[in-house]
Design a protein around this nucleic acid. Structure first.
Length: 283
DNA sequence: ACCCAGGCGGGCG
DNA sequence: CGCCCGCATGGG
């Protein structure tokens, strides 16, 4: 297990890990050391933040782990400029100050699709539970002796009954269908080069993926920063902040934020979501 | 016991 | 179109 240190800027590993993004559904946080562990393409990675400006990365394949870390935690984002775009009112200034260094993550499109198919009408703890069961049961052991995320082929071969045993409930038929489509030739990775509308349109043709889940995948699996997923938490927070607490339709909410944060809607959503959820919507 | 969770699909008016 | 309903399951 080799190790290296890397300089980081405006990055907070724990905040990022606690923000319920795909890597947090299959990774783990050691509460004592603050170290985050995850498996990326079969390569185990362990990251520890030594100081605000330095992280230590440990992995048997250190080169892969380091470049994966930079990509997954979006190290090339200019957070100063992003904060200028999104911290335009009191709530967002509070969110940015309190969770400074919270980053969007950029995850594998297939892995992101799986966890967000699981996310509908569900809660974060249980999404993690189901994901870990999926990896245990359908993941293959990698060269480094850890289980990697199940492939589309593996999940498409699973029976509905087997998927149900992982606790998926009514989502198992969506999972089997989506895995089947991908195993059958839909290459999710190929859409990395396409624009937001193309990515979202493709995703929404898959069963079990609607407007919100497609936006989550577009944002966290494809890095489309114009995506703005509106879940129950974001909905509540937006209504409270900008609609006097009145119940407002998703469509109006989308209209109300378009162009609001200079194209950085994805980051604005992350801070709205995290601040609204963690701080109980009372701030 | 009861309620809710990073919504979606289908059916109705 | 918009609205409304059911939905599997585990944790608070």
């Amino acid at each position: 297990m080799r190790s290296m240190e890397m300089r980081v800027n405006t990055f907070n590993l724990v905040h990022t890990f606690q923000s319920a993004q795909p890597v947090t559904f299959f990774g783990s946080l050691d509460g004592n050391s603050g170290a985050v562990s995850y498996v990326s393409s079969g390569n185990p990675v362990r990251v520890t933040q030594l100081s605000p400006g330095i992280v230590r990365i440990e992995s048997p394949d250190l080169e892969a782990a380091a470049s994966d870390f930079r990509e997954r935690f979006r190290m090339s984002d200019d957070m100063r400029r992003i904060y200028e775009d999104i911290a335009i009112d009191q709530f967002m200034r509070d969110a940015v100050r309190k969770y400074s260094g919270l980053r969007l993550t950029l995850n594998d499109p297939w892995e992101t699709t799986v966890v967000f198919v699981l996310s509908q009408f569900n809660n974060i703890k249980r999404i993690r539970l189901i994901t870990s069961r999926l990896i245990d049961r359908f993941g293959e052991e990698s060269a480094h002796g850890v289980k990697s995320f199940p492939t589309p082929e593996a999940l498409s071969r699973a029976t509905i009954a087997e998927l149900n045993e992982c606790g998926m409930g009514f989502r198992s038929r969506y999972m089997k269908a989506v895995a089947g489509t991908c195993a059958d030739g839909l290459d999710l990775g190929r859409y990395r080069g396409k624009d937001y509308a193309a990515v979202k349109g493709m995703l929404m043709e898959l069963p079990g993926i609607g407007d919100k889940v497609a936006d989550c995948i577009a944002l966290m699996g494809y890095g489309k920063l114009e995506a703005f997923p509106i879940d129950t938490w974001v909905k509540r927070t937006l209504e409270r902040l900008y609609f006097n607490g009145k119940s407002t339709g998703i469509k109006r909410l989308h209209e109300s934020v378009s162009g609001k944060w200079g194209g950085m809607q994805g980051y604005a959503q992350l801070y709205l979501y995290h601040h609204g959820r963690i701080d109980g919507n009372e701030a």
